[in-house]
Amino acid sequence: MARVRGKFAKKETTAEVMDPTKVVGLSPFQLGIARLRRDRVAVIGFWVIVAFVFMAVFAPIIVKIFGLDPYKLDRSAINDYGLPKGPFGGISWDHPLGVEPGTGRDILGRLIYGARISLLVGTIGTILTTSVGLVLGMIAGLRRGIVDAIISRLGDVTLAFPSLLLLIALNQPFTQRLVDLGVPRGNTARLTYILLVLMIFGWVYVARLVRGQVLSLREREFIEAARSFGAPNRHIIFKELLPNLWPQIIVLVSLSLPGYVSIEATLSFLGLGLYAPTASWGLMLGDSVGYYRSDPTYLVIPGLTLMILVLAFNLFGDGLRDAFDPRSDRQQL
């Protein structure tokens, strides 16, 4: 049977792997996917993430269909004290997860919109750190010598900084600086600042991993072979090195993304992230703390949502690592 290539081959190849009587040649990537699909916990994590991404992407439509406008005040859902009417934070058909005390805004709607911010920061943060880390790591690994030394020491120095502390301490002056440089005031400036700092401190982890891999890969036979054929650097980087780096990078990405989601929530919670009235999980958490006596549901729901998303990413990331990192103890195949 001729092997089918491309994305439509996935099902078939998996079936072939499952069938012990057939011996089929598979790329490491296909092997990894196959292993991943057998890891039930990781699959659940994956679908939870998909659900969140779906919610975030289609937030305006979902909110419209179900009438969950996150910015609409609902005076009728709160009593004279400003607290939600009805038990469990005002959970009702109109407001499936209750309403925000004081304003009566819908919590589910705010969570859905908050997911956009969380995932946006997570995704952009990860893309930025990964690309910077990848480039610097590869340069360090390929060039070696003085360039490697400079990049590696720079990484060491960066790691020595207490990044979260710096992120908090430099918040006001640097955001102001960005505004002076022409970044729109408010959320745009704050987000730009957060992402920049995340990038400045996040690239080291990717760069170190990539550098180590490149150092070991460049001595391998297939690279030697390519070189002996006179393959240009471009070919070696894109055709020989990168395909062998992807699995590790994907694992790292899936594990660092929830970290960035948490950092956004932490900063907003501390009042250093997004500005109200933007719906953000961190802002909701910050606001809800004061209500832990009078409206505990309000405290539980955003916290639980954040936990579920981060947990899903971590479980999925663990599954990815098990599937793609052959040295892992927990591998199943």
Binding site: Y71, L73, E100, G102, T103, R105, A276, P277, L283, G286, D287, G290
Partner: peptide, 12 residues
């Protein structure tokens, strides 16, 4: 924290 809500009302 209260002003995060009040400002939403102002903007609205």
């Amino acid at each position: 924290e209260l002003w995060q809500k009040l400002i939403a009302i102002w903007i609205d």
